[in-house]
Amino acid sequence: MTSSLVPDIKEKVVLELNVRNHPGVMSHVCGLFARRAFNVEGILCMPVGEGVDSRIWLLVREDERLPQMIAQVEKLVDVISVARHGAEHVVFERLEDFFC
């Protein structure tokens, strides 16, 4: 496939964030993407373990600004860790039935 046929389709990337669980943390994370004009296509968030921490899964598109975006996310005080997964990650695929 030549890139000229599908110039706008970029690779999907799944980001896995471990965060401190409190009422403002989703605002911090989502607001950061929004104000840096970086589109987030999917968001999942649930508490993990005892509920002290949460895990946020974000579905985004590969973009030359993504490393900068991740660097900015890593600066958030409530973000404990950020991991980057490729499009092969199943977390959003398993939910597709709910979005038909």
């Binding site: 490393p67 900068q68 660097a71 900015q72 890593e74 600066k75």
Partner: peptide, 8 residues
Amino acid sequence: VDAAELGK
């Protein structure tokens, strides 16, 4: 000191 400034 801010890693996010490198390459921004």
